[in-house]
Design a protein around this nucleic acid. Structure first.
Lengths: 216, 216
DNA sequence: TTAGGTTCGATTGCATCCAATCACAACAAA
DNA sequence: TTTGTTGTGATTGGATGCAATCGAACCTAA
């Protein structure tokens, strides 16, 4: 009798998962080449599951495949980065709206704990990690099948760039973020859907514009 | 000297493209099983490119793969269908906004021609085909790298269901659509971004709600 | 009858080998 | 120099064979 249906994961999926971790952790630079043979050796597998894993990561937006040529860590120019933020502005408020009514008290406590740690973060590293954790937690209540994928994908592909750009952000940015996070938390606790949407929209939009300023 | 860089397409890509056409044309019912061996025979290829093609279609949302089990034409329950429409409401107005400023006069003429044909459509088949054509054309000016994929993906996966549900829509629905399309066309010609966004949002939303009514 | 276990055919997943393609360097011609 | 051509090594793409896995029918025992 099997209690937990462990869904016998294929090795291609395991490889994809591990590669994904590595990429998100910043092991590879955007634009870095991924050679099938090298990966095969690294993961002690043949090239077949590697190829499949690369296709999966392509679907996640982490890797870009060019036929007969190779695979690279996805690289964004600033226009693409900006585009992704514009999509986030539209899409994440919807996800938040769908999530809030189903947030359990346990999740809300978790959220508050994360927010507290986020406010005490001293390094940019910590800030980014906890910021991601906080926002994705606010979406936890949304039982979606597509929206969640889209949102995750955008957080994934923009990850290396958030890291890169955040280094040069002014202190002001972080205090604004801090205030907005607190407002968002309150709106969530009040279950005020419209207000929460509006705050989140503004939060993402402001970040986009500040990053754009840096670029110019 | 090669003038058109024909980007030597791998057979896996060709297979993916053809399969995609078939699926969108309704050759397979949602939920239909896709067996690798059968497809391999049909396309006179081995299973390797078939597997890759299936992964690509999975990324397009057209196919759902379950490990060690098989691939099926993606099937949506009504909740998922509704979710996709809610995403469309948020995302397509953005795409329209990014598109309008770059629409050439040639494209606008094409749009008007399509709209005219759309208004004269007599069968549901024709209506669906031209409706898709019209809307996707309005986005043609947007030079996006991600948004376009997302939007296309949603039109793709909901295609069989639009076909199914449209059969039972009231005449009223089509007259509303007709009016909204005309308003949209005018807003586009005026390059009135806000108005265009609003009309499109309402258009998608109304469709979603009418389809929901049918279901109940 | 029904719940649980077992077997077996069908199908997917992976490894290996060979073919196709590309990128780059070396060379030739203007 | 610059442009075009040709070869060659590295790498990806595809075919094939075998192993792993699933699920459904069949059996067994209560």
């Amino acid at each position: 009798m099997v209690l937990i249906s462990e869904d016998n994961i294929a090795t291609s999926q395991a490889i994809a998962a591990e590669l994904k971790e590595n990429i998100l952790a910043g092991k590879y630079q955007p634009g870095a080449r991924l050679v099938q043979d090298e990966l095969a050796e690294e993961f002690r597998a043949s090239r077949s599951p590697i190829r499949e894993a690369l296709r999966m990561l392509e679907a996640d937006g982490l890797v870009t495949i060019k036929s007969h040529s190779g695979a690279w860590i996805t690289e964004l120019d600033f226009a693409e980065f900006e585009e992704l933020y514009q999509i986030r502005e539209r899409v994440e408020p919807l996800m938040l709206r769908l999530s809030i009514p189903h947030l359990t008290t346990k999740l809300i406590k978790e959220l508050e704990a994360t927010l507290e740690k986020l406010n005490e973060a001293t390094t940019v590293q910590q800030f980014l990690k906890l910021d991601r954790e906080f926002h994705l937690l606010t979406y936890e209540g949304a039982a979606t099948s597509y929206l969640g994928d889209i949102v995750q994908r955008m957080w994934n592909t923009t990850q290396p760039y958030r890291r890169r750009y955040s280094q040069i952000l002014e202190r002001e940015h972080f205090t604004s973020a801090h205030l907005e996070h607190t407002l968002l938390m309150n709106a969530i606790k009040r279950a005020d859907l419209d207000d929460a949407e509006r705050i989140l929209f503004g939060h993402i939009r402001r970040t986009r514009l500040e990053l754009k300023d840096i670029k110019e």
